[in-house]
Design a protein around this nucleic acid. Structure first.
Lengths: 208, 208
DNA sequence: GCAGTTACGCTACGGGTCGTAGCGTAAGGA
DNA sequence: TCCTTACGCTACGACCCGTAGCGTAACTGC
């Protein structure tokens, strides 16, 4: 929800916040019904009950609109303390998988990432609106594990950041790949196997 | 390269294999220049020096065409025996990352996966043309590691298959996520950290 | 050779989406 | 009240889609 950060022009008719909400909801509905590739700006405008020009006054195009429409779904992600690192990992994996099972996110996430490979500003928007929101969970989970004594504290901030990035890519990447590429379900059994692998590694996970 | 498996109709003018090659190469060139979203069938036809109707005689549309055009790039992936499981993992990670740095694959891979979430036949095509080709490397690497004594043999075929699928999703998913979502390079340092994490797990990788 | 069959190049077309311009009207602030 | 900005609506040229139709090219079997 950060199309234009500057607070607002102080004069003239203000932008309708109701229209904002209606447009984003219409975008999600259109994603569910039509999917990314068949979603059109005209259709979204019709569903939202606004003129097409209103959409273009706020978003540069389909890419930016869909990112903002989907971003709020990632706010649902939480990380309640489940008592152990293993339980926390398994919990977040299942939660993330649930999110990826929704048709809006399935069809939109990969599509906007694909677009972002040729559009730097879109990539930054995705990062701040979606990716960074997930990464917080990794940082929080590590803190807790360190407080519990399950993980030791890193020596310096630079390796700490590298480790967090690595773990984030492994967890998010594995869940996304399993769900969207392999197209097979992330159930409790898979989440359990993955967690064991992540914690103990290939060498140690041979008991599964 | 398996649009139509049946050997060929035995009568009439045969399809030009030269046109096949020219079209697929033109598709890759168009992906490099224009990217997935701006690639059009007309442009590919012009580049290949064939009529647009010729494209539609062989492929149902953009999705299928791009999958076939990109699939051959994944044949470059190999898994030479580097002497240890760690070296093999690190090698395949770097090789896969190199492939994902090419502009054709960057822009195409995520896009066709996104499309496949709403198109079952496309998903099967991707699986047989791309995904299964990578999975072989995992199976081969595991065999070697088991022969070396680095991994023990699984008790039954079902858990063996589950493990292979899991490892595949973790490796491919992590590299794809790092490259295309986090948009940061997979260099030797990252590959080394990932390999350590994969082999030893979070609990054991604390020395890094 | 000759007929039969299929592929190819080319043109043309209706249908759809894009993104914008122009206008009159609505909703706030000085 | 004047000024400024947002909104709805219409219309538009541009582009791409996917297909139909036709004449020509290539290969097979008689």
């Amino acid at each position: 929800m950060s199309h234009t950060d500057p607070p607002a022009p102080r004069t003239g008719r203000p932008r309708s916040t109701a229209a904002d909400a209606a447009i984003l909801e219409a975008t999600r509905a259109s994603l569910v019904d039509l999917g990314w590739s068949k979603l059109t700006m005209g259709d979204v405008a019709t569903r939202a009950g606004v003129a097409k020009t209103t959409l273009y006054r706020r978003w540069a195009g389909k890419n930016e609109l869909v990112v903002d429409a989907v971003a709020v779904l990632f706010d649902e992600l939480e990380l309640p303390d489940r008592g152990s690192l293993a339980a926390d990992v398994q919990g977040v994996v299942l939660q993330f998988a649930t999110l990826l099972e929704r048709p809006e996110t399935r069809t939109a996430l990969m599509a906007v990432v694909a677009e972002s490979t040729r559009d730097d500003s879109l990539r930054h928007r995705i990062r701040s609106a979606i990716v960074d929101r997930q990464k917080r969970l990794v940082l929080l989970g590590r803190e807790r594990a360190q407080a519990r004594g399950e993980l030791r504290y890193e020596d310096d901030a630079s390796t700490a950041a590298r480790n967090a990035d690595l773990i984030f890519d492994v967890i998010a990447g594995a869940v996304v790949h399993r769900t969207l590429v392999s197209a097979e379900p992330v159930d409790a059994e898979w989440a359990s196997g993955f967690t064991t692998l992540l914690l103990l590694g290939l060498s140690g996970a041979q008991t599964a």
